[in-house]
Amino acid sequence: MTSTAPEIDGFFATTYAEARQKFLASAEAAGLDVQSHPHPLVGRDGEALAMDVARAGPADAASLLIVSSACHGIEGYCGSGVQNALLADTAFQRQAAEAGVAVLYIHALNPWGFSWNRRTTHENVDLNRNWHDFSKPLPDNPGYDELAHWIVPDTWPPSAEAQAALTAYAARHGERALQAAISGGQYTQPQGIFYGGRNPTWSQQTLRHVLQEQATRCTRLGWIDLHTGLGPSGHGERIFACRNDAAALARARAWWGDSVTSIYDGSSSSAPLVGLMWSAADTECAQAEYTGIALEYGTVPLGEMLEALRGAQWLENRPELGDTPLRREIEQRMRAAFYTETPEWKQRIVEQGVEAARQAVQGLSPGK
Rank of each mutant, 00 (worst) to 15 (best):
G184M: 02
Q332R: 15
H122N: 13
A5V: 15
G236I: 07
Y144P: 05
V42R: 15
A108W: 06
Y297C: 11
C242I: 03
R94Q: 15
Q179G: 00
A246C: 07
G222Q: 03
E7L: 10
R328K: 13
Y169A: 01
G184N: 03
E7N: 02
P325F: 10
D133P: 13
G143T: 06
L64S: 06
V260P: 05
E123L: 11
C218R: 05
R44M: 13
E98C: 05
E320V: 10
A17C: 10
A360L: 04
L65T: 12
F11W: 14
I182S: 00
P139N: 09
A19F: 00
A29F: 02
A108F: 02
V67L: 14
A165E: 11
G298A: 08
F240Q: 08
W116Q: 14
A336K: 13
A88M: 05
P38W: 04
N117Q: 14
E75Q: 12
E28M: 01
N128S: 01
V67Y: 04
A248F: 00
G79Y: 08
V350C: 07
H132R: 07
A180F: 00
S115T: 05
G311T: 11
L276H: 01
T15C: 04
S203H: 07
G31L: 08
A61N: 03
E344W: 03
L104Q: 10
T14Y: 03
A246V: 15
A96P: 09
F92D: 08
G292Y: 03
W314D: 02
R335F: 02
Q189Y: 08
V34T: 14
W156F: 13
V42K: 14
V274S: 12
A54R: 09
I293P: 01
Y16I: 04
T324R: 10
L49Y: 10
W223C: 09
D45Q: 13
D225I: 01
A102H: 09
T120W: 09
T201P: 05
E123S: 15
A252T: 04
